[in-house]
Structure formats: C-alpha cells, structure tokens
Amino acid sequence: MLIEWSDDLSVGIQEIDEQHKVLVSLVNDMHDAIHEHHGSEATADILQRLAEYTKIHFAVEESLFRIFDYPGYEAHKKQHDELLKEVIELQEKVSSGKSSVSFQLLHFLKMWLTQHILDSDKEYSEYLLNSGIKAQSAKSGWFKKLWH
C-alpha cells in the first residue's frame, strides 16, 4: 500500500473524505498493479478511472465552493484545472502506449493527492464547516442534506 488513510487526511466532511478515500484507493491499486506486474493495460485502466473520478470529485468540490461562496474559489479551481489537465494528459499518454507508469510517477501521484488534501482541501473544509455545512452527510442524497 502506497498511501495509508489516516485521520490526518480527513477534512472533517464525511462525503468529501469518502471521495478522497476512493482516490487514495485508486492510487494504491495502481501501486499494487505495478508491483504485482499486472501489465500496462491494467495500470492504464486504473489511471483512466482515476482521471474520471478526479473530474467528478473536483466538480463536487467546486459546486460546494459556489453554494457556500468560498472566497478561495478561483485559486482552488486553478489548482484543480492544473491537476486535472496533468492527470488526463498522463492517462492519454499511458493509454496510447507513449508512456508507462513509473515508480517516480506513482510517487508523484501520491504527493499530488496527499499534498492537495493536506494543503488546499483542509483550508476550504474549515471555511465550509464554519459556514454551516454538515460534517456528517449521508452518502446517498448527501447533497440535499448538507444544510443544518
């Protein structure tokens, strides 16, 4: 396992934590696939799922920023756009066989994910929690249950 989920990575909002756990799990799956020599098709498939899920996750976060009028929206969105652009570029290169997922790249993805959660996501979660978002929103229909 490359990334172990811990309370340090929790942003204090259940639904966002659940989504972050999915991203962590995908990076760990990629790590396992490389270590267990599952082949480039398997890593390309996981990378594609990572890119797709990242897109969904960022869209959810950005919706919350707009709903709660988060003042750091523009700067955070810039980071999302850059992260997404890089992971999609990477996924396309790997899918087309022009690049492979290396040990360096895997650690980059680890840092990419953990640093973004620790640095930027914790900042917005503090704002959202102070603005009245529920810390424990149920996974089903969570969007309707965000408000106190």
Partner: peptide, 15 residues
C-alpha cells in the same frame, strides 16, 4: 531525491 518530488515541484511550477 525522494521519488516523485521533482515531478511534484514541476507541477507546482506549472500552477
């Protein structure tokens, strides 16, 4: 020379 750090800093430079 921790693995992936140079790539991550390159990512930060792009941001």
């Amino acid at each position: 020379e921790s693995p992936g750090v140079d790539m991550y800093v390159a990512h930060l430079s792009r941001v």
